[in-house]
Design a protein around this nucleic acid. Structure first.
Ligand SMILES: Nc1nc2c(ncn2[C@H]2C[C@H](O)[C@@H](COP(=O)(O)OP(=O)(O)OP(=O)(O)O)O2)c(=O)[nH]1
Ligand SMILES: [Mg+2]
Ligand SMILES: [Mg+2]
Length: 441
DNA sequence: GCCGTTTTCGGCCCGACTGTTTTCAGTCG
């Protein structure tokens, strides 16, 4: 990523955090969204701006006038006034503090106002001196959790490469398949979307004994820390240095859960908004038809005035259990497969690789999804070295392996004598190799 | 702050888990 993109990602993320501290959650979301776009785009925003002007910035998804002008201001002056002012109010290393599991904007605000905590070291020493437990809203457990979370954070190495995550995940999934009651095990999250880097390993399990799955994971060897565990999910840190999230559901909810857990978050939000527009509600249990003005509906006028989710959990006395019953004014209409859900919403199912809310939903509505390149689409390989120089396998072995992968042709590209250290071929050897190739053909 | 074949203003996803709160806010997925 370009240097300027990186700096702007950091700035917009910090602005998002500060707006959340200030209880402006939609501005927070806007800045996070903007940061995410800059984080994933391959172009350098400065080059884009210099070539095509501010309009090119505004055309980026989730970047509008406001952020485009701030990008322009930063390119021209190396500063953003609004950001500088916000940072004067909260001169805090916000990014490093939010990396501590369980510490978010609201905690950071209190810790700064009450204890003048500005960075990770401040936080650690305050916790060690037992200054945090006495704050209102905090306690002994919170303080201890902070210390543990800092310890794990300090040994963290950042996001994994897909190529490292995938083999590990597959091995882990095999273990889950052996647990009693397990019906389906699937990759989810960025792993299933095949992102180049993976923040954590997300796995979905369909089981008629979800609790057993979660218990077994909790007891697995290599698990160093349980970040959280309940009736439906568990999140752990393992000795390899990363986190695993497992969600366990009943088979009838499997499609909805897979849709939810595959994400991305932005894709989910967009999809759920479409559901609302069509008179549905979408969550990880299914797609629900909202019945209008049913006589036994719970005082709909009162419900409007209260934060919706609070109201619902309040009704049940504790966390709502979707496995048993849903609300009387909601009718389950889809959830066993992803296809059911997307179809009911008027969309083609798209491959996980596309689910980033960057136009794939609009394309799916129009039935104009792009066809992705698959392994079977690869016709040939135009760079192959063999044991004639520094490769490991013979020409014949490479040819057979290529056939096995459905390739129609390969190009043998061994080194010539100019690269002596790899045993480069001289004129005579090249001609010999040609004969060998003709023989095999 | 962003966005729009029902809107250029008025909405903005929805739920699980934890801790310290006695009824829910904060954090995370
Ligand atoms: N509806 C909804 N779904 C979410 C939200 N946050 C996360 N999810 C879903 C979609 C994500 O892909 C999935 C897994 O969450 P993660 O935090 O692990 O994100 P993801 O795997 O996409 O990226 P990562 O590589 O882990 O950073 O959970 C949210 O705020 N709302
Ligand atoms: Mg993930
Ligand atoms: Mg996760």
């Amino acid at each position: 990523m370009s240097d300027i993109n990186k700096k702007l990602v950091h700035i917009f993320e910090e602005m998002g955090i500060i707006y959340e501290i200030k209880d402006d959650k939609y501005r927070q979301r806007a800045y996070y969204n903007g940061a995410e776009i800059l984080n994933t785009m391959s172009e350098d925003v400065e080059i884009l701006y210099k070539k095509e002007g501010i309009l090119a910035l505004v055309k980026l998804p989730r970047i509008g006038r406001g952020m485009a002008e701030k990008i322009e201001e930063f390119i021209k002056t190396n500063h953003i006034k609004e950001y500088d002012n916000l940072k004067k109010e909260f001169p805090i290393k916000l990014e490093e503090l939010t990396l501590v599991e369980g510490v978010g904007p609201k905690m950071i605000k209190v810790l700064y106002k009450e204890l003048n905590i500005k960075n990770l070291n401040d936080l650690e020493s305050a916790a060690q001196k037992e200054k945090i437990r006495i704050l209102e809203g905090f306690g002994e457990k919170t303080e201890k959790n902070i210390l543990q979370a800092i310890a794990f954070l300090r040994q963290e190495t950042g996001r994994m490469l897909l190529g490292d995550a995938l083999p590990y995940a597959r091995e882990f999934m095999e273990k889950l398949k052996k647990i009693e009651g397990v019906e389906i095990v699937s990759e989810a999250g960025s792993l299933r979307r095949r992102k180049e880097t993976i923040g954590d390993i997300d796995i979905l399990v369909a089981s008629n004994k979800p609790n057993l799955v979660l218990q077994k994971i909790e007891k697995m060897k290599g698990v160093q820390k349980i970040w959280g565990k309940g009736e439906t999910k568990i999140s752990v840190h393992i000795e390899q240095g990363f986190d695993i999230d497992v969600r366990a559901v009943k088979e009838e909810n499997y499609g909805a859960a897979l849709q939810y857990f595959t994400g991305s978050k932005e894709h989910n939000i967009k999809l759920r908004q479409i559901a609302i527009d069509k008179g549905y509600k979408l969550n990880e249990y299914g797609l629900f038809q909202i019945q209008k003005s049913s006589p036994e509906a719970n005082q709909p006028s009162t419900e409007k005035l209260l934060p919706a989710s609070r109201f619902k959990s309040g009704q049940a006395g504790k966390t709502q259990n979707h496995n048993s019953k849903f609300k009387s004014n909601e009718k389950f209409v889809a959830g066993r497969t992803e296809k059911e859900i997307y179809s009911k919403l008027g969309l083609e199912v798209m491959p996980p690789e596309l689910r980033e809310n960057i136009g794939e939903i609009e394309a799916a509505q129009k039935g104009k999804l792009p066809k992705l390149i698959n392994y079977g689409d690869l016709k040939g390989d135009l760079q192959i070295q063999t044991n004639w120089t520094d490769g490991k396998n013979s020409i014949e072995e490479m040819a057979l392996a290529a056939k096995e992968h459905g390739l129609e042709y390969i190009l043998i590209t061994d080194h010539t004598k100019r690269l002596a250290m790899t045993g480069g071929l001289n004129d005579k050897k090249v001609l010999e190799q040609k004969k060998e190739i003709e023989k095999l053909n």
